[in-house]
Computed example of a mutant assay.
Amino acid sequence: MYLSLLDVFLIFLFIVFIAVIWQHFKVREHTLRCVKRQCDQLGVQLLDGAIQGSYWCPTFQKGQFKVVRCYRFYFTSTGSGRYRGEIKMRGMQQISIHFDPHPM
């Protein structure tokens, strides 16, 4: 059995697709750990135990391709209110995190 150039190209695309999905899940899990750590430091509780991806944007930083991802999450400080937060990541590096104003 011989592989054509098209077959090799399709196999390569499949491998790249799997690698991109794998990286996405690694960044998402790392981001969730960052959010949980920051919530613990501020004394607030992360609601739903999850983050939601809102957008991503490809960028080049120092000649390297990076993806800036933005995730939203909900938290509470008193147990009765629901407030929104947002975290931005460039690759595995946290760029910023924002918590909506909330009572302490």
Score class of each variant (00 low, 15 high):
Gln93Trp: 06
Glu29Trp: 05
Lys62Asp: 14
Trp56Gln: 14
Lys26Ile: 05
Asp7Leu: 02
Phe73Lys: 03
Trp22Gln: 08
Ile15Asp: 13
Gln64Ile: 00
Phe65Ile: 11
Ser4Leu: 15
Met89Ala: 09
Ser54His: 05
Val27Met: 05
Phe73Ala: 10
Gln45Phe: 08
Leu42Gly: 00
Cys57Gln: 11
Leu42Gln: 04
Phe73Val: 07
Leu47Pro: 05
Leu42Ser: 05
Gly49Arg: 09
Arg37Leu: 11
Phe99Asn: 04
Gln61Leu: 14
Gln38His: 14
Cys57His: 14
Gly53Met: 03
Arg84Glu: 15
Asp7Phe: 02
Leu42Phe: 01
Met1Leu: 04
Ala50His: 06
Arg37Asp: 11
Tyr55Glu: 09
Tyr83Arg: 11
Gly81Tyr: 14
Gly49Lys: 06
Arg90Ser: 12
Val20Cys: 05
Trp22Tyr: 13
Arg84Leu: 10
Phe73Glu: 06
Lys66Tyr: 14
Pro58Val: 03
Gly79Thr: 04
Met92His: 07
His98Met: 02
Ile18Leu: 07
Gln23Lys: 13
Thr59His: 06
Trp56Ala: 05
Gln41Phe: 08
Met89Val: 10
Ile21Pro: 13
Phe14Pro: 00
Ile15Glu: 02
Ser4Ile: 12
Pro101Met: 01
Arg33Asp: 11
Ile87His: 15
Gln93Ala: 07
Lys26Cys: 07
Leu47Ile: 03
Leu46Lys: 09
Asp40Thr: 03
Thr59Met: 08
Arg37Phe: 10
Cys57Tyr: 15
Val16Phe: 06
Leu42Lys: 09
Arg82Trp: 02
Leu6Trp: 11
His24Asp: 00
Gln45Asn: 06
